[in-house]
Amino acid sequence: MSSAATSAQPDHEVHFASRGSSYYDVLLAVFCVVLVVSNIAATKGTQFFSGDVSLGPVQIIPVFSDGGAVLFPLAYIIGDVISEVYGLRAARRAILVGFGTAIMTFLTFLVVIELPSAEFYENQAAFESVVWSGLQIVAASLIAYVVGQFLNSYVLVRMKARSAEPGLWRRLAGSTGVGEAADTLIFCAIAASAIGISTGGDFLNYFVVGFLFKCAVELLVMPLTMVVIRVLKQREPTYFA
């Protein structure tokens, strides 16, 4: 068989790159920033539509979410890239480092609360309110994040073990569905009261909207995610079986 025919065959071996590279360092740094910023942004509950808006005979129900939804889906996108290119151990390291940075951030806020305020500073009560609600958000986020990210990475890597390099889009979609479902359910269950959600109907709205939104974002950017993964696989100097 010619070398050209051989190279055209699909790659049925499982490959991962070494995590000791500058690309991994950049992904890890962005991953941690996304997690910390999302936790802070999630202290604000958001609502679209007032509940008395109608579109002809159809009543538009309010849509509840939180500020963390703006950026948090990027954490799963980066998690997918790390899991696919660098493997489960590298993904586990990223998850644990992100966990540590989020805890450090809010421990810092707790210390800052206790520092004496300057005479001209008039926002101590507002700062404390955000931080204390943020602690509940962080607790929700960290528990949901650890469970969801580990499931996301585990499912992706296990699917890759079955299909090897082909079938990337199936791995990304399947792992996203499992990880986001667990993450969103756990987060909403713990954080709902911190942003003012108190009824079963509002909670269901919060969960469904959050899950669908996160999955939709990841599916919409999946072509870009696949391009990033392909570029990293081509550029990593130590790509091995």
Rank of each mutant, 00 (worst) to 15 (best):
N205T: 12
V208I: 15
F203R: 03
Y76G: 03
V131G: 03
M1P: 08
L212Y: 04
D202M: 05
V37C: 02
C188N: 04
L212R: 04
G200D: 04
E122A: 13
A125C: 03
T43G: 05
L135G: 03
F99D: 07
G68I: 05
G174D: 07
R89H: 14
G177I: 15
D25C: 08
S163A: 10
S193A: 08
T101M: 11
A182R: 08
M104L: 15
G79E: 01
N39C: 06
L142I: 13
R93I: 14
S83L: 00
N205C: 10
T238Y: 07
V221A: 11
R92K: 14
N152P: 09
V228I: 15
Q136K: 13
S50K: 09
R92V: 09
I95Y: 02
D52P: 01
V30G: 09
T101E: 04
S7K: 15
L156G: 07
E13Q: 11
L55A: 13
L172P: 05
Q124C: 00
N152Y: 09
P116C: 10
G201P: 01
L156H: 07
V138H: 00
E84D: 12
K160F: 02
V33C: 12
Q9K: 15
L156V: 07
G100S: 13
P237V: 02
P62Y: 05
I61A: 15
S65P: 04
F109E: 06
V208C: 07
A126S: 12
T101I: 09
F187S: 08
S193T: 13
A94T: 11
L96Y: 14
K214P: 10
N123A: 15
A189R: 00
S7C: 01
L232F: 10
V81A: 03
R171G: 06
L142K: 09
I95M: 11
D25Q: 13
K214T: 09
G56S: 03
G134F: 05
G210I: 07
A29H: 05
A42F: 05
K214F: 11
L232Q: 05
L55E: 10
G67F: 07
A17W: 02
V147C: 13
R158N: 07
C188I: 12
G179Y: 10
L115I: 14
K160V: 06
A144G: 15
G134V: 05
V14G: 08
V130C: 03
A241L: 03
L185V: 15
L135I: 15
P223F: 14
R92F: 06
S153I: 02
L212Q: 01
S153K: 01
L168P: 04
